[in-house]
């Protein structure tokens, strides 16, 4: 187990193994997202209540899923970095943060757009949107903290601690915002409480969610590989690799 973890932690090994996984991941991501989009946007039936505007769900829900999962995986990578001092884990965490912030922004923006036909306003203090907004601020905090340190190692550790503190707080924030929302509830409609979807609607949604996850993993691996080359630029294996290619 130990040997395995440390082997996985070696940048060289990670670089090699990720090269084999990446093509599959990219193909899967593109295929799933293209199929899901076409199916969802063109062939899925319109919602009996919201008509065609419900189709934003095919972007909003996967983005919202990803926004939360990325934070959790970022914290997990931070924990691995802190406990086993595996640098690749920190590189991955550093690469995930902007991606997660982008996904949170996409979820927020699509939620706001969705708000126009459903609520007649661009912004509603809906429980989900509010939690998402707070999550966005948490991402910004982690990114800003990492950037504020002049020593990269210190910044990495600080960002890991903050991500861990954040991940403990996310359920508390989510629960308390839901609680707050039920107390002040004004809108009669929420995204969450809806009748069971027909398969024609939820299968493309499932495809989109899977596609987004594949896209996230593939993009993180690609970015981490670039980061490895940047940070390990002085190592012999990187030099050999670059010279071999040129």
């Amino acid at each position: 187990m130990w040997a395995f973890i440390h082997k996985l932690g070696s940048p060289k090994w990670f670089y090699a193994i990720s090269a084999r996984l990446l093509p599959w991941l990219w193909v899967a991501a593109v295929a799933l997202i293209v199929t899901g989009s076409i199916w969802g946007l063109l062939y899925a039936p319109a919602d009996y209540q919201q008509g065609n505007s419900f189709r934003i769900i095919y972007v909003h829900v996967p983005a919202a899923f990803l926004a939360q999962s990325v934070f959790v995986s970022m914290a997990a990578a931070g924990l691995v970095f802190m406990v086993w001092k595996i640098k690749v884990a920190d590189m991955a965490a550093a690469m995930m943060a902007p991606l997660g912030a982008c996904m949170t922004f996409v979820a927020l923006f699509s939620g706001a757009v969705w708000g126009v036909p459903t609520w007649g306003t661009w912004w509603q203090w809906d429980a989900r949107l509010t939690s998402m907004l707070i999550l966005f601020f948490l991402y910004i905090g982690v990114i800003a903290l990492r950037g504020a340190f002049t020593s990269r190692d210190a910044g990495a550790r600080a960002a890991s601690v903050l991500a861990l503190v954040g991940v403990i707080n996310i359920p508390i924030i989510k629960y308390s915002v839901d609680w707050w929302y039920t107390l002040h509830q004004t809108a009669s409609f929420t995204f969450t409480s809806r009748p069971a979807m027909p398969a024609q609607m939820y299968v493309p949604l499932l495809l989109m969610v899977l596609g987004f996850y594949c896209f996230f993993i593939a993009l993180t691996l690609t970015r981490t590989r670039t980061e490895i080359l940047r940070r390990e630029g002085s190592k012999r294996w990187v030099r050999q690799l670059v010279e071999g290619r040129l």
Partner: peptide, 25 residues
């Protein structure tokens, strides 16, 4: 987390305020 940074003051609010929300609620 910010005590070692020269200008940690504003950053502290950015890090801490989101975590304060449940308490406020």
């Amino acid at each position: 987390l910010t005590v070692g940074l020269a200008r940690g003051g504003v950053l502290v609010s950015l890090l801490v305020l989101p975590l304060y929300i449940p308490v406020l609620i």
